[in-house]
Design a protein around this nucleic acid. Sequence first.
DNA 1: GCCGAGATCGCCCGTTCGGGCGATTGCGCA
DNA 2: TGCGCAATCGCCCGAACGGGCGATCTCGGC
Lengths: 220, 220
Amino acid sequence: MGDMAQSPLMSQAPIRILLVDDHSVVRMGLAAILGLDEGLSVVGEAEDGTQALEKFKAEKPDIVLMDVRMPGVSGIEALRALRTACPAARVVMLTTSELDEDIQQAIAAGACGYLPKSVKREELSKAIRHVHGGGHYVPEAMARRLEQLARRRHLSAREIEVLDGMRRGLSNRDIATALSISEHTVKAHVKAILQKLESADRAEAVARGFEHGLLKVERP
Amino acid sequence: MGDMAQSPLMSQAPIRILLVDDHSVVRMGLAAILGLDEGLSVVGEAEDGTQALEKFKAEKPDIVLMDVRMPGVSGIEALRALRTACPAARVVMLTTSELDEDIQQAIAAGACGYLPKSVKREELSKAIRHVHGGGHYVPEAMARRLEQLARRRHLSAREIEVLDGMRRGLSNRDIATALSISEHTVKAHVKAILQKLESADRAEAVARGFEHGLLKVERP
DNA sequence: GCCGAGATCGCCCGTTCGGGCGATTGCGCA
DNA sequence: TGCGCAATCGCCCGAACGGGCGATCTCGGC
């Protein structure tokens, strides 16, 4: 493996990579893995967001591989700062957990890729080349999770009915009666609504309902 | 008294009146009082909203004197039905209590006058003539109360601050901390808000806040 | 000068809410 | 043929909510 250096495609100048992680062990591991691919070259390492910015300016790497979680300036913040300073920077975020919720923030902040540290060597190389080629890379499992998170904001028809009951000042029991279901089911819906709308209580959920256009002003 | 029949003004055809009240005693009393005024003439009586509509169509009275509270179809509902069927109908509502809250609904539903049953004979006649002449009549005391009720919708600056806390999903205690006051005071404000916005709970209050323009969409 | 209204604080109490653990059914999509 | 998800139902429980009874103080209008 890793002996594709002679192929016409790989004979180009290697992709220059900057590693950012507070754990030197991880940096070592990544460097070792990436070193096996002759089309890739680690040109610098940084321990935190601040260093990352400095190293980036000094080395002008093609790709930044950065941990999402770091002490001090978080990976997400560092990503934002980096993208603000150098919008052309192509950053691939790394995460420890398989199902990291930060994925949304990372994408929103301009990450070009998002990988779990458990990623296999082949996929890592593939991801880096893909991102270097101008694309975005998110593993299958994470993409699915992204969809879930996206769908998660959209209330179901039933949930909107319940939300509408809330905005009228109905209690869970009242809503249950109105919809001819049990109070417990209403509570289940309410719970789902609070989660999806990231609200602490029904009052905030109603506010979010208006903000998201789920509820319309009836009597202006 | 009642011998003004010869005066030029009173020589016109008398004002034809329909009485609507579920208590025959009240109808009798009104008929007796109105009978003292030769410019007025009771041309029919009804015991409920349904009868009222029938009698109105049959007699085409100039003025309807109707109780706000009646079993079955309430006076307010009957008023609405009447105004819908005959927009030209001029209706004066009667109430038992001096400070009836229904006054707002009655006015909103198109009543031309609103009187307590304790009204004096002179004022009753005056009111009927005024309404018959195309005007609206509400006694001094009730007019003042109307103002109060109107002002009552406007939340104070402090109350809007509390409402804003609600829409953010803050608990009473949280709001108290944010505003540096006691939780109890917040509860007092919340209570006032619920009353003013006619809401059963904070969720509905928030909805009303948006509907009344007190709250603005922050994140569309 | 008094009255009303707003803002502040106090206690009690029943109901509701929201969270935490469950669970089964049916539908669509892979 | 599963897997995921929406919708339905179950119980327990602590905290929050809302109502009802208070109260004082200040400010502005009549």
